[in-house]
Structures are given as C-alpha cells and as structure tokens.
Design a protein around this nucleic acid. Structure first.
Ligand code: ZN
Ligand code: ZN
Ligand code: ZN
Ligand code: ZN
Lengths: 141, 141
DNA sequence: ATGCAAATGATAATCGTTCTCATTTGCGAT
DNA sequence: ATCGCAAATGAGAACGATTATCATTTGCAT
C-alpha cells in the first residue's frame, strides 16, 4: 500500500476519507468521476463519508496535483488521476463515456496561436462531443 | 430594421423582450455575453425584462440557431451571435476578455482523431485559458 | 375589436458546489 | 500509551446559476 505516502508527499495528512477517495481513483474502476460519482461509489461500498468532505478532498487533491479537474458540458466537474501526461477528451453523447487522446500537432498549433496573439497558455481544454458511428454503441455499459 | 424577420425566420413570434435581446447582440457592443450580462445591460438601458425571460429567450435563440452557447470554466454559459463560422476561444485569465481564432489544421486533426475511433463529431469546444504576456494587459477594459 | 394560445415576470424550486460550525481525529510531544 | 491541539470531518445552511410554476399580459389571426 502506498496511498499514505502519496498523501504525505502532497503535504496532506493521511485521513480516512482521503485514503478512501484516493484508493477509489487508484483502483481504476472508473477513470473520470464527478464528486457525486465518488460520493455514491463510496456509499455503495459501505464507506460513509460526507458529501462536503468529498468536494473538499477532490479540490485538495487537485491543488496537490494528484487529480486533474475537467469542466465538461452539463455544469459538473469531472476528476481523474493525474498521470502526468496531458490529454484531451472525446465524450460519447450516447452513453457519456469518455475516451482520451493526445495529438502533438494540435498542441503545437495552440501554442503558436496563443503566442502569435501575445498570450502564454496556462491551461486549455479540448472536448469533442460525438456519436458513435457503429450500430450499437460499444461504449455502452 | 430586420430583427423581426430574423425572429420570424426562426419560427419565433416577435415580442418585446426577444427584440431587445436580439438587438443587444446585434448591436455588437459585447460579443460574448452571459445571461446575467444581458439582463444587466438591458436593465441599465432602461428596458426592463425579467431574468427568467432572458434565460428562456437565450435558450430559444440557441435552439433556433440565432445564438451559439459556450460553456467556459466558471460554470456560466456565454452566448454569442451565430455568424455561421465556427471558431474557438482564448480566454484572458486577467480580464476575462475573449478572443476568437480558427485553425483549419486543428479542425482537420479533430475529425481524423474522431473518425479513427469510430465517432462522428457533433460538437466540440477548444478553450485556451491564457495570460497576456505584455506588461499591461491590452485586453483590460 | 375579439379571443386565445403563447409569452412574460415574480417567485419558488433545483442542482452543483461552498460555507459554517460543533464534533471528531491524526499525530507530535510527553 | 496518553495528552493536547490544530486540522479534518459531517450535517446542514447558504450560495450562484439555471429552470420550473403559474397567474397575468400580449401578439396576432380572425
Ligand atoms: Zn490538449
Ligand atoms: Zn482523461
Ligand atoms: Zn474548433
Ligand atoms: Zn466567439
């Protein structure tokens, strides 16, 4: 088990709710989760944490660099484990499932566009909303 | 005056609040506006419309294709006149001002990425959040 | 001018998220 | 192991953006 060290390294003390949230993300069951998703999954597995704590912990983990937050359409934040490699997302409009991609060309062009205009990029989000073209959506659960 | 025809063409009957909202967008004062922005600008110019009506009208205009809605970070929707030409956005983190850009290369790569994965794009959003690198932010009001 | 469906506006309700504050907990010092 | 206390938690209130409700008003076809 190395979760406690992950927390220590991030300057966060190791508490029960934090360990539960972190191991839920590290379990890999679901890569992209909203606060509500995390809350419900924890409740379902018998662990009871407060919703407010889930929100607080997610925000702390984001600030500590353990998680990355995305703002997808629909107004709710979605978090994922920060594996150090930036990527963008395709969201399936039929099942909501998320696929990741990375395109160096797109990244490079963004840099050029920004610097040509006198900006230095701090963050960016490329979200593609799409329909699966196959007969039955293979992304459906 | 051609606003009434714009509404007619969109299948919307021409009412006072709709005309006011539409002409605010067509005036070009501010290209990207949230519901609150629209509401406040209308109040400031003496026209009094209800906030609920502003929200309804913006949604109807979006559905009618008169306006395009964007979900920027921060949780509020921003609308702009649909001029038929897709473009993406750079948001200045210092003043919140929005600059538009279009890059055919980025668009083409997105298409390829999606089709390679069996998706057909319905919509996408590329938001670049950046700091202005010049001494004093030229985008400040 | 008349009638009525559609639109409006005030307000309540909803949803995601943050804040408050009394209680509990992690953990370094004893 | 035990104390002490700052930090963290949880329940619920508060919040900001948006949507729903519903009585009143308005556009417009007759
Ligand atoms: Zn990217
Ligand atoms: Zn991801
Ligand atoms: Zn684009
Ligand atoms: Zn724009």
């Amino acid at each position: 088990m190395h979760q406690p060290e992950h927390l220590k390294n991030a300057g966060l003390k190791s508490t029960v709710p934090r360990l539960k949230v972190l191991s839920l993300f590290e379990s890999g069951t679901e890569r992209h989760m909203s606060a509500e998703d995390v809350y419900k999954l924890l409740l379902a597995s018998g662990d009871d944490v407060g919703l407010a704590t889930v929100y607080r912990v997610l925000t702390q983990f984001e600030q500590a660099g353990l998680l990355v937050r995305h703002y997808f359409e629909g107004g709710k934040s979605v978090f994922e484990l920060n594996q150090g490699k930036h990527h963008d997302h395709i969201v399936c409009l039929q099942c909501g499932r998320v696929e990741e991609f990375y395109d160096a060309g797109i990244e490079a062009r963004q840099e050029k566009i920004a610097s040509d205009r006198g900006f230095s990029i701090r963050d960016h989000a490329l979200h593609i909303y799409a329909d699966c073209t196959k007969k039955q959506c293979p992304h459906k659960v």
